[in-house]
């Protein structure tokens, strides 16, 4: 492989820089979400009918929506719900997925059942499954988290199971078994510690997918109720005014893209940094 050294150099710099930028962007978004009451210039629900659908300007930096509510403030509060839902999905799917992945990978007897369920769930397109589940469960923030967790848990199971299958054959696990170390400790120390990095990488991707999926669900009316400001519901309720007032949908859309993209870049960066083989190759 004769790659130009200059190209390689730039790629490397660019990679690292981009990860750093993405990391900062994420940090800022999360900080704003956390500090929403202090950062947002207006109450997200403050209706001001006379300042309806005003374009971005001095009073409302990103304009106002059909009820005269400040788009910027709603994006900041929306971040709370959107990222909150995403984060909850990550926590639930990581916990459940890791558990089942470990069990399926370590105990051959459980593997068949678990993987059959996983394959069945993964055979359906993510968003369809999510819509179906929300439709059955009813539209609420809780149910969206539940539905998306069901959608993304199988991915985690796969990743964890694959790593577990490799790690459990390694001599240090055999050594632990020869020592009479309990199975519980083998799973929770020897295997879990060593699957942690691929799982962490997966977590950032699922976070990104969940943010996108929540928006998608809300846009399709199968998400959280419209009263709750999320980036998804903002686009959903703003879409009919989009022709005259692009800002109503553009800015929440940008927020989604920015958050999801940053998460993915951070995930890529993490993977490169945690994978010793890739790190050497760099």
């Amino acid at each position: 492989m004769d790659r130009s050294p200059i190209l390689l150099f730039f790629r490397r710099m660019f990679r690292r820089k981009l990860v750093l930028v993405a990391f900062v962007v994420l940090f800022v978004i999360m900080l704003m979400a956390l500090l929403a009451p202090w950062v947002a210039p207006y109450e997200p629900t403050a209706i001001k009918v006379i300042r309806r659908l005003k374009p971005p300007g001095e009073l409302n930096w990103l304009g106002t929506d059909e009820f005269g509510r400040d788009v910027f403030s709603r994006i900041i509060y929306g971040a709370r719900a959107s990222l909150g839902i995403g984060f909850a999905v990550v926590v639930v799917s990581m916990t459940v997925g890791t558990l089942f992945g470990l069990l399926a990978g370590y105990f051959r007897s459980l593997d068949g059942v678990v993987m059959r369920v996983v394959d069945a769930l993964m055979a359906l397109p993510d968003i369809l499954l999510a819509i179906f589940l929300v439709a059955v469960l009813g539209a609420s923030a809780f149910n969206v988290v539940l539905a998306l967790s069901i959608v993304y848990t199988p991915r985690v199971v796969r990743v964890v199971r694959a790593s577990t299958l490799v790690i459990r054959e390694l001599p240090f696990v055999e050594a632990a078994r020869a020592l009479g170390v309990s199975t519980r400790r083998i799973l929770s120390v020897h295997i879990l510690l060593n699957v942690a990095s691929p799982v962490l990488v997966q977590a950032t991707f699922i976070f990104a997918y969940a943010v996108l999926a929540e928006a998608g669900l809300s846009f399709l009316g199968a998400g959280v109720p419209p009263e709750l400001p999320t980036w998804g519901t903002m686009i959903a309720s703003g879409q009919q005014y989009a022709d005259d007032a692009f800002w109503v949908v553009l800015f929440p859309g940008l927020a989604i893209v920015l958050a999801a993209l940053s998460l993915q870049i951070v995930g890529d960066g993490l993977r490169d940094m945690l994978d010793p083989k890739l790190r050497k190759a760099l």
């Binding site: 390694l170 001599p171 240090f172 055999e174 050594a175 632990a176 020869a178 020592l179 009479g180 170390v181 309990s182 400790r185 120390v189 020897h190 510690l193 060593n194 942690a196």
Partner: peptide, 29 residues
């Protein structure tokens, strides 16, 4: 009865300190 392995890299858990690698044997019994 105990075992010593061929591969000096794969036979020690890379995420544990030596103290915990050896300590595990002591704890198990």
């Amino acid at each position: 009865a105990q075992m010593v392995f061929q591969d000096p890299y794969a036979s020690l858990n890379p995420r544990l300190r030596v103290r915990d690698i050896i300590g595990e044997a002591i704890d198990a019994h």
